[in-house]
Computed example of a mutant assay.
Amino acid sequence: MNKIFDTYIPEGFNTISPYIFTEKAEDLIQFLNDAFYAEELNRSINPENGDIANAILKIGYSNFMISQARGQFLNMRTAFYLYVNDVDALHKPAVDHGAKEEFPPAEMPYGDRQSGVVDPAGNYWWISERKVKTAYED
C-alpha cells in the first residue's frame, strides 16, 4: 500500500467513505434508520438556514455522511453494496419504509443472494449476502 494512505482515520470510517448530498436529508436519515437500522452518531446544523450541514450515520460497521444538497453540492445519487446475513429480513423493511423495489431477493450467478431497492432520495442499494469466497479473497 502507498504510504500516502498511512494516516489517522476516525473509527468506523475507511480510506474511502461515502458522503451523500440529498434534497431531503432529514427524510433520508429517517428512512435509513427505519429500513437499515442506521444509527446517527453526530449532526451539525447550518446556523444560517437550519439545514443539516453534516450528519454522521453508521450502518453495521460502516460510517458515512449525509448533508443537505445546496449550492454547488446538488442532489447526487449513488449506489451502495450492503452486506448482510439475511437479505430477505432487510429487503422487506426497506420496501415497507418507502424504498422502490428494483428486484426481489434472488440467488445470483456470482454466488450472492441479493435484492435491489431504491431509497426515497434515488440511491440504489444492493442488499447482498455473500455465499461464496472469490479468488481475490484468498
Rank of each mutant, 00 (worst) to 15 (best):
M1P: 14
N2P: 10
K3P: 04
I4L: 10
F5I: 04
D6I: 07
D6N: 13
D6G: 02
T7P: 01
I9M: 09
E11H: 12
E11A: 14
T15M: 09
Y19I: 13
I20M: 05
K24P: 04
D27A: 14
D27C: 03
L28K: 05
I29V: 10
Q30S: 13
Q30W: 07
D34M: 12
D34L: 15
D34P: 05
A35E: 05
Y37E: 15
A38S: 13
E39R: 15
E39D: 11
E40N: 09
N42W: 11
N42P: 01
R43W: 07
S44Y: 14
N46C: 05
P47N: 10
E48Q: 12
G50A: 04
G50W: 03
D51L: 04
A53S: 08
A53H: 01
A55Q: 04
K58W: 10
K58T: 09
Y61G: 11
M65T: 04
M65C: 08
M65K: 01
I66K: 00
S67L: 02
S67Q: 04
R70P: 00
G71Q: 00
G71S: 05
Q72G: 07
Q72V: 13
F73D: 01
N75F: 06
N75P: 06
F80W: 08
F80K: 08
L82A: 05
L82W: 05
L82C: 08
L82S: 00
N85L: 03
V87N: 01
V87Y: 02
V87M: 04
A89L: 06
L90A: 07
P93K: 14
A94M: 08
V95H: 01
V95D: 05
V95W: 02
D96E: 15
H97E: 04
G98A: 03
E102Y: 14
F103W: 10
P104I: 08
P105G: 09
P105S: 10
A106E: 13
E107F: 11
E107L: 15
M108T: 11
Y110G: 01
G111P: 04
R113V: 12
R113T: 10
Q114N: 13
S115E: 13
S115N: 06
S115G: 02
S115T: 06
V117G: 06
P120R: 06
G122R: 00
G122L: 03
N123R: 02
Y124W: 14
Y124D: 12
Y124V: 13
W126V: 12
I127V: 14
S128H: 05
S128I: 05
E129Y: 11
R130G: 07
K133T: 15
A135T: 13
Y136R: 11
Y136N: 07
Y136F: 14
E137I: 08
D138E: 13
D138P: 01
